[in-house]
Structures are given as C-alpha cells and as structure tokens.
C-alpha cells in the first residue's frame, strides 16, 4: 500500500508526465507518405528537439529539482536526455500512437539513412518494453528515476540528487508489486531496462556521428 504522501507524489508525477503531448503538426508530417531519407532525417531531428524540450518541462516539475544547484540540473538533463527520449519513444510506440502512426513512424526511422546496426537495438528495446506491459505510472516514475540519477557525469552534489531519487524508487517498487502481483521479478526487470537504456547513450552518439559522416 502506498502512503497518502506517496500516492500524492505518484499522481503529481503522472500528471506532469501526461502533460507531454505529441505535437499535432508532427503527426501530420509523419502521415505524409512521400518523403526522402533526408526529409525523414530532418523530421526525426525536429522530433528529438521537441522531445528534449518536453523532457525539460517534465523535469522542472519533479519535486525538489528546481532547488538543486543550477549546473547540476544541467548535468542531470544532459546525462539523461537521450535515455528519457528512448523511454518516451518506447511508450509512444507501445501505447499512445495508433496503429497507423506506429507503422509510419517506424517506416520513417528505417528510411532515414540511419544504419541498421542502430535501428535493430532500438526496435528490440521498444518491443521488450512493450512486453513488460507497464502502466502509465510506471513509465512516469521510471522516467523521473532516470533523470534523477546521482551518478551522471559532472553532477557535484550527488547526495542531494539521491535524496530526490530514493523516494521515487520506493514508490515504483510498491506500484510494481500492486500492478504485477503475479510477477515478483517485475521491478527487477524494470531496473534491468534502465541498464539497457544506458547503452543507448553511446549508441546514439555513434549514430549521430555516422549520420554526419554520411
């Protein structure tokens, strides 16, 4: 059972997470059928930029975040932006985007000049996230936990960040037990996905580099 305080925390973070919309003009661009690899690439960069802005807005609402040292705020966001983006993409891919958009999005990604060695792990990750059948609360909390990781590079006051992250991990564990009572490994699986997410930081940097070279 969550305490009242914990339930309020979950509701608050979920609401902040739900406020992240999918811009209408992007849906239209996604649905436009005829597009070149270059156009697809440009659309993806536009989506990525919007993603980052949306992640920052969500992060600003996390309890205690704005009280952190300003440069630590930057370090946390820089360190987690790519991971948060992939988490959000996984959720959109598995949950919010209707069938057609998912196919269109996948098509655009596969035809954007990105090398197969980056595409395959991306979609494998989306599918493995889908297999977990996470609820919205889990996605919201996992995103917050990812962003509030005290071990990011350049974070100076790690203890302050830990104090913000710990209560969220506690709550997530309870929610996992509640939502997935038949699967006691579920929480551990979620944490395992966080480790998988970290591999995307390196992948993403490599992918951008190879894009530029191409």
């Amino acid at each position: 059972e969550l305490t009242r305080e914990q339930q309020n925390l979950v509701n608050y973070i979920l609401e902040a997470h739900l406020k992240q919309g999918f811009p209408a003009d992007m849906s239209n661009k996604l649905l436009r059928e005829q597009s070149s690899a270059e156009e697809n690439f440009l659309l993806l960069t536009e989506m990525a930029t919007t993603h980052v802005q949306v992640i920052v807005e969500f992060t600003k609402k996390l309890p205690g975040f704005q009280a952190l040292d300003h440069e630590d705020q930057i370090a946390l966001l820089k360190g987690s932006a790519v991971e948060a983006m992939f988490l959000r993409s996984a959720q959109i891919f598995n949950e919010k985007v209707p069938e057609d958009h998912t196919e269109q999005l996948e098509d655009k990604i596969r035809n954007s000049g990105i090398s197969q060695e980056y595409i395959t792990p991306m979609f494998n990750f989306y599918k493995s996230m889908g297999d977990l059948k996470m609820c919205r609360e889990e996605y919201a909390l996992l995103t917050a936990i990812t962003i509030l990781s005290p071990d990011r590079q350049y974070v100076r006051n790690r203890e302050s960040v830990e104090k913000l992250q710990e209560p969220l991990i506690e709550v997530l564990q309870k929610i996992c037990k509640r939502q997935h009572p038949g699967n006691p490994q579920h929480f551990a699986c979620l944490l395992g996905r966080l480790t998988e997410l970290r591999t995307f930081n390196h992948q993403h940097a490599e992918m951008l580099m190879s894009w530029k070279v191409n």
């Binding site: 930029t49 919007t50 980052v52 802005q53 949306v54 920052v56 807005e57 600003k60 300003h70 705020q73 930057i74 966001l77 820089k78 932006a81 940097a205 951008l208 580099m209």
Partner: peptide
C-alpha cells in the same frame, strides 16, 4: 562533439523557460 553542445543549448534555454513547448 557539436551534437552535445546543441543538446546543452536546448536544455539551458528550456530551463530558463525561453522555449514554447
């Protein structure tokens, strides 16, 4: 890398509330 600089720039601006989302 230039890509990292771009990311930080977006983050700083968004933190200051200079971007409409």
């Amino acid at each position: 890398p230039a890509s990292n600089l771009g990311l930080e720039d977006i983050i700083r601006k968004a933190l200051m509330g200079n971007i409409e989302t």
